[in-house]
Amino acid sequence: MITERKPKNIFTQGPIAASFIADSIQKHDTKTNIGGHSIFLGQVRADVIEGSKVVAIEYTAYEEMALEKMHQIREAIFAKYPLVCMHVHHSLGKIAAGEICLFVFTSSEHRKAAIDACTETVERIKAELPIWGKEIFEDESYQWKENK
């Protein structure tokens, strides 16, 4: 049976708090068919570029398109892996170095599906979602982030 899933909003203004992640884990204690969780956390890195240090990344997105695309990715991942659930959160706005900007959380009966689905989801988010990051330096100059 295919369950219809509605597009979810993945965007959060500001950083993703560690307490939010902890609560999200806690909420799964009633889903006792789960045997393995996989979590990816993206953190803003203080890159040094030509002597200037990145202090924050300001994220923007083409939100409507990103949510439609994320819905397609979610459907494809659920079709490919036997997941119990998946949660994705991405920050918008200014996120300081050291703060969490991406939280991907997959759960399945056995570990392999959760791990592989988490990895593939992260890769697809980076490659396919219309999101941009402005790397802001200490002197408030900036450059546009490029994904590697």
Binding site: G42, Y59, A61, Y62, M65, A66, H90, C101, L102, V122, I125, K126, A127, E128, L129, P130, I131, W132, G133, W144, K145, E146, N147
Partner: peptide, 10 residues
């Protein structure tokens, strides 16, 4: 019409 430069999410 949206012009989308290379994506940089995550």
């Amino acid at each position: 019409v949206a012009l989308l430069p290379p994506f940089a999410g995550g």
